[in-house]
Design a protein around this nucleic acid. Structure first.
Lengths: 293, 293
DNA sequence: CTGTTAGCGCATTCAG
DNA sequence: CTGAATGCGCTAACAG
């Protein structure tokens, strides 16, 4: 009996899952893994899930819109639950509900349909950045935004705009793609539009902020933050590199992943739990890329 | 019949797998996801595997040594194959063979046991870097290596050393951990040991090279590459950022993942195929962080 | 060619 | 409390 175990026997999870209706599989859907924020999230999630006996079935999307194909790939595996960092339509969320698969949205929320979610508070984060920038007497603002189909992007944009509006400031806005090149390009366009007269640029993520800093230094020969303040969002690894020392908001990734996993497992054990949204405040990294007041 | 399909019916992959002995699951094991090279690899792998109807069961290790636990987590799921970017002992490779699970090692090779593998050619890469550095009359070398348990790290170290040896040069060597901080720290230590007299520092990956550059500029006020040449390895995203413009070797990630996937699927279809090693040359990115001859 | 049946490897139930 | 039978949802082999 135990000899069999020592001989390398492992129970067949499939046969077992057929009976128990538990597969111990969790689907993790991430829209674009190359976003510097997600590798850390993914590593945390897999480790936390592994620690409690669950396996990760990974799905990565090239575009946020390929979700439907992914869903059809998920169903046959009868996953116990899903953590999704991609934009879901209400209809797609309903599919999870209909099939009784608990789901946690990561840095997203349901549109009309309520869904359990874990988010970093974009609104308070941008508000805090803007507050400090205004206190340092910056008046002429630019924003390098994300693509329109990004949920966090639009959240951050709305919040930054609203915060500026309260000081009667209308920023110039340029659409980027959350990558380095679009940050670099974005700064060029904004400086162009502003005739070089800009006090601060709010980038809606760190990688674009880094692109903007490099552009400002290399192409415009500006000194950061003396000639121009630049802020980001996320708190990814490179944000603290000595070459950048970004002023940014760090997402509390550990607490967020922890929350996502525990919320999900609760719902696996106990279906029919009420949707709950958990919103975590980010931490201001002062850095050196902006003059703050 | 088709009404059922429209009604959302999806066959149960578990019941199916029980019969067909095909699960369409591929285990992907990655030692540390936060290494900037791996997110790209992982994204490519998942997309390529998805495209041909396979799903990815992800395992990420905190330390390269936790492999045994992971293996026991893999067996119950009867995966069709595995792609492993972590160090496996011969014994562990044998376990895959014994269970008839095809495996492809990614940037690793079997120790004594032959195993199919896909690698970027460390030897030729470092050799080329050294060749160009020597041609530019650098004579005093430092190396910032990886941890001893890293396979690619030791490969690159051996090759760099060998290439230098042929010019009768013995470099100073410092052990890093493949992360930014250890690159920064490594440069400090090396400059210390060399009494500030160093022509070139070979970092065995890009992130350490970036740390070294930042350290050189910030702490030692050196101009790169005028005062000191620094080279890396991998060709990760930040390597091309304007703030660094690394001189490095870029791994052909697309071709490597493509090869890994096709080799694996071949072996899934056709068990008992001979182990094959595929070695891909890297591409020299000239960059601006080193004076080359 | 359509309709039926056996069995994949387990967990769960029931009888002994 | 231990041992044999049932069925999870599907595919394969089989008979009609």
């Amino acid at each position: 009996m135990r000899a069999a175990k020592q001989l390398g026997y492992q129970p067949n999870a499939f046969a077992r899952g057929l009976i128990t209706r538990r597969t111990n599989l969790i689907a993790v859907v991430i829209s674009n893994l190359t976003n510097l924020n997600y590798p850390e999230v993914l590593a945390e999630l897999t480790q936390r899930l592994s620690a409690v006996g669950n396996r990760v079935l990974l799905f990565s999307l090239a575009a946020e819109s390929d979700v439907n194909e992914v869903l059809d790939q998920i169903w046959p595996y009868r996953v116990d639950g899903a953590i999704v960092a991609a934009r879901l339509t209400d209809d797609q969320i309903e599919q999870f509900n209909d099939r009784g698969v608990p789901i946690i949205l990561y840095n997203r929320v349901g549109d009309m349909v309520p869904a359990a979610s874990v988010c970093c508070d974009s609104a308070s984060g941008e508000r805090e950045l803007v507050k400090h920038l205004l206190a340092a007497r910056h008046r002429r603002f630019g924003i390098i935004a994300g693509p329109e189909d990004s949920y966090v992007g639009e959240e951050r944009l709305a919040s930054a705009r609203r915060s500026l509006e309260q000081a009667d400031i209308t920023p110039l806005v340029h659409r980027g793609r959350f990558d380095y090149d679009s940050g670099k390009e974005g700064l060029r366009v904004l400086l162009d539009q502003a005739g070089g007269k800009l006090d601060a640029v709010i980038c809606l993520n760190d990688v674009m902020a880094i692109g903007a800093i490099d552009c400002a230094r290399t192409l415009f020969n500006l000194s950061i933050p003396n000639d121009l303040s630049i802020v980001g969002f996320d708190g990814v690894g490179p944000a603290t590199w000595l070459g950048y020392r970004l002023t940014t908001i760090r997402q509390p990734v550990r607490r967020m992943t922890q929350a996502a996993v525990s919320m999900l497992l609760e719902r696996v054990e106990n279906p029919g739990m009420i949707p709950e949204q958990r919103l975590f405040g980010g931490e201001l990294l002062t850095g050196q890329s902006a003059r703050l007041g």
